[in-house]
Nucleic acid binder design. Sequence first.
DNA 1: ATCTTATATCGCAAATATACGATTAATGTG
DNA 2: CACATTAATCGTATATTTGCGATATAAGAT
Lengths: 111, 111
Amino acid sequence: MAFHKKEEFTQKEQDLANFAKAMSHPARIAILKVLAQRNECICGEIVDILPLAQSTVSQHLKELKNAGLISGTVDGPRSCYCINWKAFEKFNNEFTSLFNNLKVKNEKACC
Amino acid sequence: MAFHKKEEFTQKEQDLANFAKAMSHPARIAILKVLAQRNECICGEIVDILPLAQSTVSQHLKELKNAGLISGTVDGPRSCYCINWKAFEKFNNEFTSLFNNLKVKNEKACC
DNA sequence: ATCTTATATCGCAAATATACGATTAATGTG
DNA sequence: CACATTAATCGTATATTTGCGATATAAGAT
């Protein structure tokens, strides 16, 4: 049975969906907020702030990293995470423009 | 075992995450695109366009509706969907401002 | 009244995501 | 070198998502 039909959509649709997926959990939103509020790379205090176990936080960080939204360098006993603003902005723009272009035409004709 | 820790985050974080979740599948992005490209409410041709079964499309529509991103009126044998631009814009703005505010300070100090 | 058409819903199977504790790995400290 | 600290990874349980076929529903057409 052919599950997993995601590949049948355009690359852009998939990329955008992956970005959204990375943002689709409040823990990951919270992590990004913590990272954003810092002027420097944060070194692991995220676990103390979030109501989640260390392994769970680590997993969320991994997902954000896979999505390209954060970058992290492991340095032995401590690691250093910060937001990848470039990637973030790229997705945010794509996301916004996807609909804003069409909005003006559409908005009046709606039910 | 206490699963489902999502409630332990702020309402705003949860709302934003739910919005992102609604956008986290390429099929739903594609549906929104189809709806946006129309000047009128679309009446069910979405199934013909997407590579998914009718029941699956119906489910995705339901999720978009639950998230408040589209509105749909069922009228017997046909239904009428269109994008809820107001809700969409609200989320999009929240989403953008969440990080843009903090970006200026942060961007230089990053690793 | 029966048939057709369009769509929602139900029931199920498979895949993913979420969470945690235990373990491992890597480095710095006594 | 033994030990503490920090974070990644593994194994596992549970929950959620995704997808489809079958069925139900609702209205128009014949």
